[in-house]
Amino acid sequence: MLSYAFRRVLSAIPIALIAVTVCFFILRLAPGGPFDGERALPPTVLANLRAHYNLDQPLVVQYFIYVWRLLHGDLGPSMVIDGFNVSQLIAIGFPFTLTMALCAFVIATAIGMLAGMVAAVYQNKWPDYVLVLAVMIGVLIPNFLMAALLQLWFGVYLKWVPAGGWVNGSLMHLILPVTVLAWPHAGRISRLMRGSMIEVLGTNYVRTARSKGLGERLVLSRHAIKPALLPVVSYLGPGLSYLLTGSLAVEQIFGLPGIGKYFVTAALNRDYGVVLGTTILYMFIILALNLIVDLVYAWLDPKVRYR
């Protein structure tokens, strides 16, 4: 198990490096720069600025400077927001984004797994139909529309929760954003869980377990759930990364102080440092999540370890 983990970690490193390279060059080869703002800067100021951020060097040199700094954990300065470097901006915004995404993740995964199991056991009966509808609604309605409808109904008409904005530490302000974020995730999880559970319930080994007279409850809890979790687990990594990127949007919609705010502005202003820094952060998170998922997978399915 340990050597398997080690091999997986090693194979993630080249992917990370290549991905950093791809991001860097795509972003830098795009037309426009951080200083072609609405009012043109005097040439000398512009030259000074460019020199300050190493933008006057050849692109390849800039790349190596960037990677060298990155290896030291330095994501470089923001080119638009004065006096802040990218790490500071991330430190301000990311904890909020992460907290919200994790809240939504835990809630949605739990609800999704439970709902999927119930639907599988009651396949083609009413709990199944209700669930399928709830999943469709959650997955198909785009998050900004869902946000608008929920804000209107629960925030404005019923006045149960605040419709938007942020008061530090107020849980009430998080209810709607987390719901919007969690619903589609719960939907996808439950759909996966339902599908794999139905499949597992039809396997020979579940039939064997039933033939032993274990009783349906034990058959489900001991024989069916663990194998049925496999596809769900392999989705959790991508799922969490959807939640993290999805929360960029939800923050924007509800006016919450996460990293999404900086990212969208930075992209519009071509603030290379911030865009690249955020992208790399997310990429590393996604790679790390995939790694964790692989390890959990190896634990759930003993066969994987020997490959």
């Binding site: 992917i15 955020t278 790679l287």
Partner: peptide, 16 residues
């Protein structure tokens, strides 16, 4: 490798 890139960030970069 492309799977590992955050899709939505990519889209926003493309927009830019």
């Amino acid at each position: 490798i492309m799977y590992a890139l955050p899709y939505i960030l990519f889209v926003i970069i493309l927009v830019v």
